[in-house]
Computed example of a mutant assay.
Amino acid sequence: MKQLLILLSVTLLCAACGDKHKKSADAADDALVAQQFSADSAFTFCQQQCDFGPRTMNSEAHEQCGQWIMDKFRSYGLEVSEQRATLTGFDGTPLQSNNITAHYQPELQQRILICAHWDSRPWADNDPDEANHQKPVLAANDGASGVAVMLELARVLSADTCRLPVGVDFVCFDAEDWGTEHQSDSWALGAQYWAKNIHKELNGKTYRYGILLDMVGGQGARFYQEGVSLLYAKNVVDRVWKAATIAGYSSMFPQADGGTITDDHVPVNQAGIPCIDIIPCYPDCEQSNFGPTWHTISDDMDHIDPATLKAVGQTLLQVLFTEK
């Protein structure tokens, strides 16, 4: 009996220690990270992309901005690779595409994918004025904002002495916005190509999950939980929305469904990488559920809100710096 009591005491002690460790780990997950995302820096990165003009496929501005993006990532010590290909638009146009990847800690096998598209839509076909429908979109939000957030994340990661236990690949997808509503697979051409060929580049490395950033700088944005994301990667949605709450942005990341979107994360998920889409939903906007500037000539820097960039960027820092 005495031996049994001793054994029971040890068992309870071990259980208590295990419970204490679990509570400690949970508390660490719930703690606010020290790293700070600079909204001003991200806003500047957004402006600098727009300074090239619309980055439409096959344009000089597109080529110049692509080089600038690569140079900025390299300036933060990241390795950069290109994936060039000639893709075919829905209208038969050959598109000179370049998926740009910046690798943080490229030597690590376990990795996180963070991605956004960097091209501009060539037609403002949702503009309220039909006279603007053949004009290109400057794409401050629908393109530049996601890349801007990734560049600021790269800057923070490179400057921080606390190295993550995982690598991060920042992928700038090309040829996302040369699509038509009559053909669902005409969108996300760069991401489709990347997904079909990613096995050639991983060399045994694996992605834990992916996060797509699309239109993450707009005024009045709220990021609902997108349908494909919930289907393929609900645990990632839960993790990111929890991080947003801890970071103080629960009002911008409501716990509510936001519909199903055709976007770059679809082919990524089809390639076996669980990937979510952080994309805004404006349920009360008559112009578009994507907001009043979507595919209009008003998608410019006057409609970018640093507070939105901050909310998304700080949420992602909360996610990254609680990785184990």
Rank of each mutant, 00 (worst) to 15 (best):
L212M: 09
F321N: 01
C162H: 15
L317V: 00
K196R: 11
L5N: 07
F170G: 13
A221V: 02
L316H: 03
T101V: 15
E176S: 09
L316W: 04
A221W: 00
D174E: 06
I304T: 02
E181Q: 13
S251T: 14
L317R: 00
R208D: 08
A39P: 01
A140V: 04
I69F: 06
M150G: 10
N99S: 03
A195D: 07
L87E: 10
W123L: 14
V156I: 08
S250M: 02
I211H: 07
L212A: 06
N99H: 02
G210H: 04
Q49H: 08
F173V: 06
S9Y: 09
A307W: 05
R74Q: 14
Q192G: 06
F223C: 01
G89P: 10
V33I: 15
A28V: 14
C162I: 14
I112W: 01
G77D: 09
K22L: 14
L151F: 10
A61D: 05
C275R: 05
E63R: 12
E60I: 13
A154K: 10
L317I: 00
L231M: 12
A221L: 01
L32Y: 06
S59I: 09
T86P: 03
R111G: 03
D263C: 02
L138T: 14
N235M: 08
V236A: 02
L317C: 00
A131E: 13
T93Q: 15
A159D: 09
P54I: 02
D127I: 07
A27T: 14
Q318K: 01
E176V: 10
G217E: 00
L32M: 12
L12G: 08
D169M: 03
F90P: 08
D125M: 07
N126T: 09
P306V: 09
N98Y: 10
D177V: 00
T101D: 15
D177C: 01
E286K: 10
Y76F: 15
N98E: 11
Q35V: 01
A307S: 12
S97P: 02
R163D: 08
C17K: 09
S158V: 11
K324M: 14
F37P: 00
G220A: 05
Y209W: 05
H199E: 13
V149C: 12
N99T: 04
T245I: 02
M150K: 13
Q110R: 11
Y232N: 09
A256F: 06
G89T: 12
D19F: 15
D160S: 15
T293E: 07
V266Q: 05
F52T: 09
M215S: 04
I261A: 03
I100K: 03
G179K: 01
A144K: 12
